[in-house]
Nucleic acid binder design. Structure first.
Lengths: 229, 229
DNA sequence: GATCACTGTTGTGTATACAGAAACCGCAGC
DNA sequence: GCTGCGGTTTCTGTATACACAACAGTGATC
């Protein structure tokens, strides 16, 4: 469920197992270690520069995260992403995010969300700024996620959401969204924010439902396009 | 280090780390290791009869399960269950089970659920049979859960549900339900089953929502009673 | 020419050794 | 009596050694 990551701010001398975990995780998420790639303990331990003991701990955490599966017999491999698994992930995501939005609308402190709303109003302009703008746009979404998480105040729910977002990050790499979708998404986010600010849980839930539906449709279309190309 | 391989025919020679994991998990779930109990690597490794290496792997998995938290500095401890955390868990559970019921209603093969329905019709009679009957009743609920899981056919969602059920098992120990609640629950389950059999996702969702609401109310009341006693 | 058995190699699973760090205890100082 | 400090002890984090199991390659047999 939630693999506790040590506090970020203080750069204490990182444990070897933590280093191995972060590096492998990073490499899996950004596609450097491709889905289905077979990994061997010794080989990876050697590469990362730690001994097998901490590497094993790292792999155990990755397995718990669902990023890696143990292989019958020998070694382990990076879990692969099928189109089916994307729809499945979104079914879970729907359930969690809808609930989160609902609870956020009930428990939010409006001030933070009002601020975020202002940012989202001007978000579409970011998309004219090229790659940097898109990056800022994604950062804004992360802020929204964080704000919702904080408002929800539920470790179980937030933990489950975090797990989903981990897998989502891999999917995002598969199908880069087009600007028109991002513009539409900004509008949808605005609607969700309005509902949360208004303290209307039902509206927040439905707005989130719609947003995720559109998101899934767009992701699947993008992947379809890519594979047809 | 010998593991009795031939003891049970179907049992493959269990790895030490797996043994340690199962034993610790079991002991946490049935309350033998109380919430907040502080555990030391060496001490536990010694007790279970494995070396520290596999024990550490087991503890890592327990942390991922959320049953255990690393302690600042030294050792680790069993996560404790507050009344707040029960409500929080149910907020997650709501989201997941409602979605699962909805999807089960869409995808179910009716035959299995019709069978289950028949069993649930006579379930209240089990409650007159004392402890054995109650046990059978719980087994029936497990069967329903399994049937829903199978029908949903979504590893992500089912995985999240499994995690929730793990924590649920601990809560069940805190507040044993009274027979009248179990009788009411049987009726609620019947409603859910009917909705799934009818292939009515919306009804299944709402029936599940209600069931879990009642379940939470009853659990909280039971705990309140116990603590007042 | 193909299949099977045997053996060498490689990799995992586990135990253990060692270093560094955090808690504990006692003592001195206020 | 309480608090701050240093030594001691114990525990964790990591590396390494070893045993067993799985795979691959070679040779023998049909």
């Amino acid at each position: 469920m939630y693999t506790e990551t040590a506090a970020v701010g203080s750069e204490a001398p990182l444990r070897a197992s933590e280093r191995a975990y972060r590096q492998l995780r990073e490499e899996i998420l950004n596609g450097l270690l491709a889905p289905g790639a077979g990994l061997l303990e010794v080989e990876q331990a050697d590469r990362i520069g730690v001994s097998r003991t901490p590497l094993r701990e790292a792999v155990a955490r990755l397995i718990a995260d669902g990023l890696v599966v143990g292989r019958r017999g020998r070694g382990f491999e990076v879990t692969d992403i099928s189109v089916d698994s994307i729809s499945e992930l979104y079914e879970l995501r729907q359930a969690l995010e809808v609930q989160a939005s609902r609870l956020a609308a009930l428990r939010r402190d409006p001030t933070l969300f009002v601020e975020l709303r202002e940012a989202f109003v001007t978000a579409p302009d970011l998309l004219d700024l090229g790659d940097v703008g898109v990056h800022q746009y994604y950062a804004l979404i992360d802020q929204l996620d964080d704000a919702v998480d904080a408002a929800v105040e539920n470790p179980f729910l937030v933990g489950a959401l975090r797990a989903v977002r981990t897998h989502l990050a891999r999917i995002r790499r598969l199908a880069r969204r087009n600007p028109s979708r991002l513009r539409a998404a900004a509008a949808e986010h605005l609607l969700i924010l309005d509902a949360i600010i208004a303290g209307d849980p039902s509206l927040a839930a439905h707005a989130t439902h719609i947003h995720l539906h559109q998101s899934l449709v767009s992701v699947l279309a993008a992947i379809d396009e890519d594979s047809a190309r």
